[in-house]
Simulated assay, not measured.
Amino acid sequence: MYSYNSLSDSELAFLLSKNDEKAYTEIYNRFFGLLFIHASKRLNDEEEAKDVVHQLFETLWLKRGQLEQHGNLSAYLYTAVRNRILDVFAHQKVEHKYVDSLQSFLDQDHVLTDHLVREKQMASLIEQEINALPPKMRTIFLLSRKENKSHKEIAIELGLSELTVKTQVKNALRILKSRLGIFVYLAFLLKIH
């Protein structure tokens, strides 16, 4: 048995790719703080930064088998966090554009067709993000939100536990909230219910 905190990044990456949970924990402990500081400086929002880094580690565990065993783990994690930060900025930009166009609509008292075009664009953006969810999560989410099925009904239909269904719906909502921004997310929830 070895001491994980004395292992190199590449040794940890190798062990992680072989499903070693202790190696994952060591990578998390070694890099979380640094990545969080990096993300916080870029985003100027600690909660957003925490979400970004947590999502990165969630993905790291899910895709551990695809990890390059002899690659530079530190560079990989910083690149991944940078890409997630860019995604956040891109979604904020889309959200700001929508809010700005909505404000313009209200200010100029445009005709109903303009509003419908914007609503269609927002619906398209929401649909795009729902389609980007992992397949099982997307199926459960659509059964819950669009077909208004209970967690119990979905569990029976898909042969899953109610807890799994509940967790998948909760995770889907969290992902959509972080990707769409709070304004679009709330509009989406109001339309669905």
Rank of each mutant, 00 (worst) to 15 (best):
M1L: 01
S3A: 11
Y4M: 03
Y4R: 09
N5H: 06
N5F: 09
N5L: 04
S8Y: 03
A13I: 14
A13N: 13
A13D: 13
L15S: 05
K18M: 07
N19R: 12
N19E: 10
E26Q: 06
I27A: 01
I27N: 08
I27Q: 02
Y28H: 00
F31D: 04
F31E: 00
L34V: 10
L34P: 10
F36G: 02
A39T: 06
R42W: 09
R42S: 09
N44G: 13
E46N: 10
E48C: 05
D51I: 11
D51T: 11
D51L: 05
D51V: 10
V52C: 14
H54E: 06
H54Q: 11
Q55I: 03
T59H: 12
E68M: 05
Q69H: 01
Q69N: 11
H70A: 07
G71P: 10
A75E: 08
A75W: 05
L77G: 07
A80V: 12
A80S: 15
N83A: 11
I85N: 02
D87T: 11
F89Y: 15
F89D: 11
F89K: 12
A90G: 05
H91M: 04
Q92T: 03
V94L: 01
V94R: 02
E95P: 06
H96C: 07
Y98R: 06
D100W: 13
S101Y: 15
S101F: 15
L102R: 13
F105N: 07
L106H: 05
Q108G: 07
H110T: 15
L112C: 04
L112Q: 08
L116T: 06
L116N: 02
L116Y: 07
R118Q: 10
K120V: 09
M122E: 15
M122F: 12
S124E: 08
S124Y: 04
S124V: 07
I126P: 08
I126V: 14
E127V: 09
Q128M: 05
Q128F: 05
R138A: 04
R138V: 02
T139S: 12
I140V: 15
R145G: 14
K146C: 13
S150D: 03
H151P: 14
I154P: 00
I154G: 02
A155P: 00
I156Q: 15
E157W: 06
G159N: 00
S161Y: 02
E162F: 04
Q168D: 08
K170Q: 10
N171P: 07
N171C: 02
A172K: 04
R174E: 12
K177D: 04
K177E: 06
R179Y: 12
R179S: 12
R179V: 08
F183Y: 12
L190R: 14
I192T: 11
